[in-house]
């Protein structure tokens, strides 16, 4: 009862507000990030959100002259929560895939990075084809492109899926998995940490379609405005500044 009442009140209040602005100028944008995918998005030791995605999102909002509020949502719950209207866009290193495009829309990509395998230096793995990795235990974050790729092509390997990338890394260090499959850029960042010292990229990278901002399929106006803003921040140099803060090379996708 309580919810129904609350919902009714909320609905009435929102009707009053949104009724006037049917065209939707998007003055307030609720952005969701996972907050556990350094260096793209993370909760720092000071409990503040930071990272490439977060900086890009802020730049996009500034370009759109909109107020951004951030919400942290578990990776697995991002798309369901977007559909349910908990926030308006996901700017959280979400790769554009056909599977996801069935349920949400994406802006143009704002960066691109391939998927890579990481294994202990001592393992001496060269070949990362499905045949060569038969019987190996491979970890990845669940509901990612990497997880989907492993599920589809590496049927003879033992696949382990984790709620966050940090937990995959933790288990690689612990030796519970033989290798992991991850977006190359966070992988690169992790290899530089104290934990990552004994590990390296192995085998061949697999290309992806780039990473975009996810929006509900009904919000085509928001999708297009974000795409325009992405192009605009690239043009005015903001993008390159943010890029340089995190990576010594460009990750832009034309």
């Amino acid at each position: 009862m309580r919810i129904v009442k609350q919902a009714a009140i909320a609905a009435l209040a929102l009707m009053a507000v949104t009724g006037a602005v049917q065209a939707k100028e998007w003055k307030n944008i609720r952005v969701a990030v996972e907050g556990a995918f350094p260096p793209f998005n993370f909760v720092g030791a000071d409990n503040q959100l930071g990272g490439f995605d977060v900086d890009i999102a802020k730049a996009i909002c500034e370009k759109m002259k909109a107020e951004c509020t951030f919400a942290v949502q578990d990776w697995d719950g991002l798309i369901p929560a977007l559909q349910a209207g908990k926030f308006d866009t996901i700017i959280s290193s979400m790769s554009i895939t056909d599977e996801r495009k069935k349920v949400i829309d994406f802006s143009r990509p704002y960066y691109q990075s391939p998927s890579s395998f990481i294994a202990p230096k001592s393992a001496g793995i060269k070949d990362t084809s499905p045949e060569a990795l038969k019987g190996k235990t491979i970890g990845a974050q669940s509901s990612t492109v990497q997880a989907a790729e492993l599920e589809q092509k590496y049927k003879d390997s033992d696949i382990k899926l984790y709620p966050t990338q940090d937990e995959v890394n933790l288990d690689l260090v612990a030796g519970r998995i033989d290798m992991l499959f991850v977006d190359k850029l966070p992988g690169l960042d992790w290899l530089k940490t104290a934990d990552g010292g004994n590990f390296e990229f192995v085998g061949t990278d697999l290309p992806t379609d780039g990473v975009g901002a996810g929006v509900r399929q009904s919000d085509t106006d928001l999708r297009d405005q974000i795409s325009e803003a992405i192009v605009a921040i690239k043009a005015d140099g903001t993008y390159d500044k943010i890029n340089a803060k995190y990576f010594p090379f460009s990750i832009w996708k034309d």
Partner: peptide
């Protein structure tokens, strides 16, 4: 179930 949900997004 979680895996299936994360792939199909079907409640």
């Amino acid at each position: 179930t979680r895996l299936a949900y994360s792939r199909t997004f079907d409640f």
